[in-house]
Design a protein around this nucleic acid. Structure first.
Lengths: 205, 205
DNA sequence: GTCTATAAGCGGATAGAC
DNA sequence: GTCTATCCGCTTATAGAC
């Protein structure tokens, strides 16, 4: 791993542990046993480190997104759960980001725009996924309004499950992540047709 | 309003606007046209201002909670919606707090414990409310597991609706808050009995 | 209670040697 | 690429006059 990469990984670890504002460039340098000057050779300043992390997130996020797309036709429910867990893993790796997101967005219009685009894309992905489940007769068809709210509900649950666990003082484990998945599944089950429910039972058994 | 109160109100406004870390004691003093020294006469440091705000939140939150309790027997659905909006207003007034909550909790074990207690109390309140709706025949009875998940879903939606709007780049208005309410309502509707649905229709019409 | 002035400390950032 | 040394600026916090 290059020094630049090590700086980024160390920064992610420390940001996740203490929050970006409690972590200084000096802390990052000290934690990886290099001098502050060396750190500044690789990055102009702290903001640039954060930007580099965001870029990494974009790349990883894009790869994940491609995987989700590829997964999607495979089978509605299983694909959805795989997607949920994938997003949770992403949110966990970059958990400082989600924690401080609103403040970042407040102070950085560019990040705001970028994030809104991702947000919209995810909503569309979910809506599309729901529509295809309806077409397959797994979900009952519903009026436009209800479909929109349903879409937002799924996305909100997925987006904030990790945060929910954290502010409730729960550990993030396989078990608690699985519970979030259960939550989404139950929300979906509410809108299932009899046929969909039968298929799900079979799948579970 | 005393200077002390004005400091608190100014701090809340600035924290909401810029985030706690971007706002210094000097900024607060300047914004209200007093000297930094004067501010330090009333508060030992910035952390103490934040603590004073938390204390205010506790008091306001407790009053709101009492109102919710009082509201509760009045009528399930209407009370639930009133509660939702009350919590949104609270979250909006202290929006810096919810935005930075995970980081606060990370660095302050006491706040963590306090917050977890509130979290648990709200879950219990919701669970109790659901149980009484089931007893009244409004909601279909459900297995323990489903009830727990349902409770958490309601609470998660209520807790994060404001955050959801913010990270999605939406304005907080009567309209968008109402949409959050719709979301919760739809989640509840999924579990309603025929009797409950009829009552709701009548209520809406 | 409120002001002005100022000290102390820290984080961010750069220069220049190696 | 990496280090040491150092500077700038800002925030916190205090002392002492009014």
């Amino acid at each position: 791993m290059t020094t630049k990469e090590r700086i980024i990984e160390t920064a992610i670890a420390l940001f996740n542990e203490k929050g970006t504002h409690a972590v200084t460039t000096n802390h990052i340098a000290a934690a990886m046993d290099i001098s502050p000057g060396n750190l500044y050779y690789h990055f102009r300043n702290k903001a640039e480190i954060i930007r580099a992390i965001f870029d990494q997130m974009d790349r990883v996020g894009f790869d994940d997104y491609q995987q989700i797309i590829a997964l999607h036709p495979a089978g509605s429910l299983a694909a959805m759960e795989e997607t949920f867990l994938m997003i949770q893993r992403f949110n966990w790796r970059y958990r400082f980001f989600k924690r401080e997101l609103t403040v970042f967005i407040l102070n950085d219009p560019l990040l705001r725009e970028r994030h809104i685009k991702v947000h919209q894309a995810m909503l569309q992905l979910i809506r599309h996924s729901i529509a295809s489940s309806v077409a397959q007769g797994m979900l009952r068809s519903m009026p436009e309004d209800e479909l929109n709210l349903f879409t937002e509900e799924i996305w909100l649950l997925t987006l904030f499950w990790l945060n929910y666990l954290e502010v409730g003082g729960e550990e993030i484990t396989e078990e608690t992540l699985r519970r979030g998945n259960e939550l989404v599944r139950q929300t979906v089950r509410c809108r299932m047709t009899d046929q969909g429910l039968r298929l799900m039972e079979k799948h579970a058994g």
